[in-house]
Every structure is written in C-alpha cells, then in structure tokens.
Design a protein around this nucleic acid. Structure first.
Length: 273
DNA sequence: AAGTACGTCAACCGCAACTCA
DNA sequence: ATGAGTTGCGGTTGACGTACT
C-alpha cells in the first residue's frame, strides 16, 4: 500500500490548490461530471491524482457546501451524533447538509473535544471525566451487547446499560430493553440533565428502551422511541425521526448509511480495543 | 518588533471495501 | 475465484494565521 496507484504514474503536484487548478476542476465537472475520478486529472488538464481531485471537490468546491462557522445547533447535533455513532464522520456529515466529514472532524478535534473536556465530559465516551479516569474500562463498553433479531435472524448490537438487564424482544422486529436507571447517573451524555424531575423519572423502575440511552431520554418532548429491524436487515428508529424533526437539517430519518445496512454501533468501542 | 506557542483547516496517507473484467 | 483498479473513510500532518510574551 501507499500512495494511490495513479500517483506513481507521473510526477504530480501536491499541497494547496491554486485558483487556476480549482477553476479547471470546476469547469471540467460542470461540463462532464466527474465520472471516474482517476480520469479526471487528465481530462481536466490537472497534474494531480484523481484522489486529490475528488477530495478537493468534495471538501471545498462542491456547490452545495455551506462553509462558514458552525452554529450552536449544529455543534449540539454533532455531539449527539458522535455519542451515537462514534468517529463515523461521514455518517455524521450525512446528517448535516452542506458540511463535510473533514470539516466536522476538524471541528471535533480542534474545538468540541476541548469544550467537552472543560465541561468535565470525556469526548470519547461522553461520560464524566473522573469516572472514566477511575474506571478500568468504561462501563458503556463493558456492556456492549449483541442480540438477534428474532424475525430476520439479523445480528444487531448496542449498549446494554446494565449487565443484568433483560433483553425483551417485542412484536416482530422491535427490540426493547429493561435496564437500570443507574446508567443515567453515569452516562455523561450532556443532555441528560440531572434535574429533580428527571431524577424522579429515572428512579422509576419502569422499563427503559435502549434507544433512550442512545439518544438521551432527557430531550424534552421526545416521543417514546422504537428501534426496528426490517426484513432486509436495515435499521431504523423513531427516535432518529424525532431527531430529524428537531433538527430539520437532518436528511435521513433512519440510521442506515446510504444503501448499506445498519452498521453495528461498535465503532466507539473500537477506540478501546 | 521579534520570537514563540497555539489553533485551525486543507490536504495527504494508509487502509479496507467495493467493482469489474 | 481472483486480482487490479477505484472509491471512500478515518487518522495524521503541516502550512498558515493569530495570540501571547
């Protein structure tokens, strides 16, 4: 492995793009579309590799990019999605129209991480910092569980907030969890406000659904979420639909990545492997 | 004013997954 | 079934601008 194969064929320019190069690339794509990226440099008259052209287009030249600073709402959404998806920047970017994965990744590493730490929240686990430091392993990852969708035999996974909790499979493909409210006291999700009203609710031993852990049941007016696994193995949740309603910028109501079936929520756990 | 530290961000690198002949 | 070519992703680097001393 190494540099992209097309880069070996000739001496290619690297580094920052000049306005002239940008113009060539824009003109070419406006005229012919990008087609096969490896052929773009030749057709556009650029001494760049196709990979570099693709990156330049996606991250900078695409006409639908928003640019500019991120709003507070966007930052909050990124934090919520990161808690849910981990460092899946492309999946997060897919839910923020006009933003690129690179842009979001940069914002996370340069700004959001710092802000969360200042609030005493571990940006990797979204748990309170002292607890993370003291714990041998973050609880949330100790409790990573997998379970079968009884109808489609699809394996799905999620965070089981309580090792002793009971996985309760409901009506066809919906999955429900029973868990300990103690999880909420230690989850560290910034939206899990520790108000008295919430504390009362959390101490209620009633069943708690897994999606509430993931998306934060302290979000006001959030309807009771349900996770659903379709026959094809794709995965959706009413909670994400709710999230979309709260954030009109969200494009996809489900948690699938394009045409790909639901990807396991193990991304965050891999940070500790 | 000059030097240094720090933050931001565009771009590159390495890898895995995918496509297709 | 296989391997070369292509695409997409996440991590990392380095240039540049700004703040600070």
């Amino acid at each position: 492995m190494g540099r992209h194969s097309c880069c070996y064929k000739q001496k290619l320019r690297k580094g920052l793009w000049s306005p002239e190069e940008d113009e060539k690339l824009i003109n070419h794509i406006a005229k012919s579309g990008h087609g096969c990226w490896s052929s773009v440099p030749k057709l556009a008259g650029l001494e760049r590799c196709g990979k570099s052209c693709r990156l330049r287009w996606i991250n900078y030249l695409r006409p639908d990019l928003k640019r500019g600073t991120f709003s507070q709402e966007e930052e909050n959404l990124i934090i919520e999605l990161h808690a849910l998806l981990g460092n899946k920047w492309s999946q997060i970017a897919a839910r923020l129209p006009g933003r690129t994965d690179n842009e979001i990744k940069n914002l996370w590493n340069s700004s959001i991480k710092k802000k969360l730490r200042q609030k005493g929240i571990d940006p990797n686990t979204h748990k309170p910092l002292p607890q993370v430091e003291n714990a041998e392993k973050p609880q949330v990852f100790n409790n990573l569980v997998e379970f079968n969708n009884p109808k489609s035999s699809q394996m799905i996974s999620g965070f089981n907030p309580n090792p002793n909790s009971v996985l309760d499979h409901h009506c066809s493909s919906s999955v429900k969890l029973q868990g300990s409210p103690a999880f909420f006291n230690t989850s560290g999700f910034p939206w899990l406000v520790s108000g008295s009203e919430k504390s009362e609710k959390l101490s209620d031993p009633e069943d708690i659904k897994w999606s509430e852990y993931l998306l934060g049941n302290a979000i006001p007016n959030q309807p009771e979420p349900q996770f659903t696994v379709t026959e094809e193995g794709s995965f959706s949740t009413t909670a994400s639909t709710w999230l979309q309603n709260q954030h009109p910028s969200l494009q996809a109501a489900n948690l699938c990545t394009g045409s790909k079936p639901f990807q396991r929520l193990s991304a965050a756990s891999s940070q500790f492997s």
